[in-house]
């Protein structure tokens, strides 16, 4: 199916600094939205709903959320979960791109990766494994990971492909466990990130 977009070029809204390895979280106008079906993981503390906070506490709560988001993004970079490609995506959105662009890309990635990992697992359960098929799936996952800047998942996929070429079921099962773990870890972080951004946006709607 072909698609057709007509994009009216919009003026720059100003250069936005990225919140990486910074303590000044006030410069982080993220504008993403959490898809309604996603839930926050339990590994990160999320502040209470905005309507339960007194109006006078709202600025403090927003600052706390931004600090939390800054810390989360910094940890994602320092742990190697994401790389500069993810920064590029943030910059594209922040420099006047489509609002919700990063959220859309992240959600697409999570859906794709989840589906591909399940396909790989199903193929590796077959009595006779088609390693070319597994390799094609891993190649696809590597591409999606590279697109979103999911560095750790991408590197694991590169190692995974070697096991495919060696036609090693044991190696592939081991690599599958690693890539699944890497992906779940990243997905949890992405979900927390999107939820924090949604809450920050709710405090400061003019950032939309």
């Amino acid at each position: 199916m072909n698609q057709h977009r007509r994009l009216a070029v919009r003026p720059l809204r100003g250069h936005i600094r990225l919140c990486i390895n910074k303590t000044d979280s006030s410069s982080c106008p993220f504008r993403h939205q959490l898809p309604p079906t996603q839930t926050a993981p339990t590994s990160h503390a999320i502040p209470p709903p905005i309507d339960s906070i007194p109006p006078t506490s709202a600025p403090m709560a927003a600052t706390a959320l931004r600090d939390q988001l800054t810390a989360l993004l910094s940890s994602m970079f320092s742990q190697g979960l994401v790389d500069e490609q993810f920064q590029q995506l943030q910059m594209l959105q922040d420099e006047g791109g489509t609002p919700g662009f990063v959220s859309e890309v992240v959600t697409l990635f999570c859906d794709d990766a989840d589906r591909i990992i399940n396909e790989i697992a199903a193929e590796l359960e077959q009595p006779v494994v088609n390693f070319d098929k597994v390799d094609a799936y891993v190649h696809q996952l590597k591409g999606s990971s590279a697109s979103v800047g999911a560095q750790k998942v991408k590197f694991t996929c590169m190692q995974f492909r070697q096991f495919c070429q060696d036609k090693s079921r044991e190696g592939c099962l081991m690599a599958l466990a690693v890539v699944r773990n890497d992906f779940y870890d990243l997905r949890n972080k992405f979900q927390t990130m999107l939820q924090l951004e949604q809450q920050i946006q709710a405090y400061d709607p003019k950032q939309q």
Partner: peptide
């Protein structure tokens, strides 16, 4: 699509195109 839109914006700022039609296949 985002990258192309941003590049088109830069071109517009430099006196180039001011509108972009992006078809996808």
């Amino acid at each position: 699509a985002q990258v192309v839109a941003r590049a088109a914006l830069k071109a517009a700022a430099g006196g180039g195109d001011d509108d972009l039609v992006l078809d996808e296949a």
